[in-house]
Design a protein around this nucleic acid. Sequence first.
DNA 1: GGCAACTGTCTAGTATTCTAACCGGTGAAT
DNA 2: ATTCACCGGTTAGAATACTAGACAGTTGCC
Lengths: 182, 182
Amino acid sequence: MSQIGEHLRELRRRRHLGIRELAARSGISHSTISLIERDRISPSVDTLSAILDALGTTLPGFFSGITSVVPSSPFYSSRDCIEIGNHDSISYRMLGVNFPNRTVLMLHETYAPGADTGEAFSHQAQEAGFVMTGAVELTVGSESRVLMPGDGYYFDSRSPHRFRNVSNEASQIISAVTPPTY
Amino acid sequence: MSQIGEHLRELRRRRHLGIRELAARSGISHSTISLIERDRISPSVDTLSAILDALGTTLPGFFSGITSVVPSSPFYSSRDCIEIGNHDSISYRMLGVNFPNRTVLMLHETYAPGADTGEAFSHQAQEAGFVMTGAVELTVGSESRVLMPGDGYYFDSRSPHRFRNVSNEASQIISAVTPPTY
DNA sequence: GGCAACTGTCTAGTATTCTAACCGGTGAAT
DNA sequence: ATTCACCGGTTAGAATACTAGACAGTTGCC
């Protein structure tokens, strides 16, 4: 929304390009670019991608350069941690909701007895965590192991992985994923 | 962009969320999400951002580039977590010792009653953590607060910060720092 | 067998982005 | 001072994203 227009305009100016010239190179009309740069419209990903192409940039590069200037409070009480799981048998409570340019996804995970994530496949990221309560069977690739409180894990998320609560009480894990693609 | 839909669908499935549930949380209609996931339309940045918000992800995280890493053994029992603290009153037990190209420093921190880190500056990084037991007074910049079990924090490590155990029992924190500037 | 509560897809209509053409302003050459 | 070339901004109309609601398939309960 906000910084996109400003950021785009700066990228263009840095290359000493006019709006019309950028339009010609990207195949997007100059009026559209003008509107985007002044935050009058929110471009589609296709449109933005075409423009960035002409600037020699990429979508990841573009968004990694955006930094919010809004400072947020460093403290998060229990109720500030928003739920991003499916509520039923598995709870994922996320930390740092409004943190600008968050680079790590920190979670407080709670699994009901018998809860199972099912197999999840490659997202390019790294995952680490400690088991706090209960007992969790973690499968990564073809390996499997039951982790007890105090134990932990660290694996590349590109390997298919799966968590299963094998205790008869709630299992809790504190985990971190970076980049926060989960 | 063809892989956007597939990527988005996988993110959603990984959380065991239905299209309708995600729609309700993001404020975007379920039909739109369906169309995006099947690459029938190219979402506007606003729309995509709203959806990613509900998934606990960010635009930079979503578009972040591909890094290939060869995984080692993903499991770490308690005794595999090496101590990097000073052993006296503060313990820092690190996860993923020999993980190649580690991008996050995951710690199990234990503070004896009264233990105090003193004021610390750090390199550019981000820190997040959950308090598990005890009570910890955290000071970041000029702000200070006592965090109880279940509470957490997330701040930019460039701000001077300090941890102090204000309970009469051991306080434990599970934390993550990225990049692992240690 | 229903019936209810899900799942994801499809369609008709609305809202928004995007384009083409036009607008006034600047500066340089004649 | 006119003309020309360029700049970015504005605006109807075309193209596309987005929404509400209907549809079919699946699961599970009675």
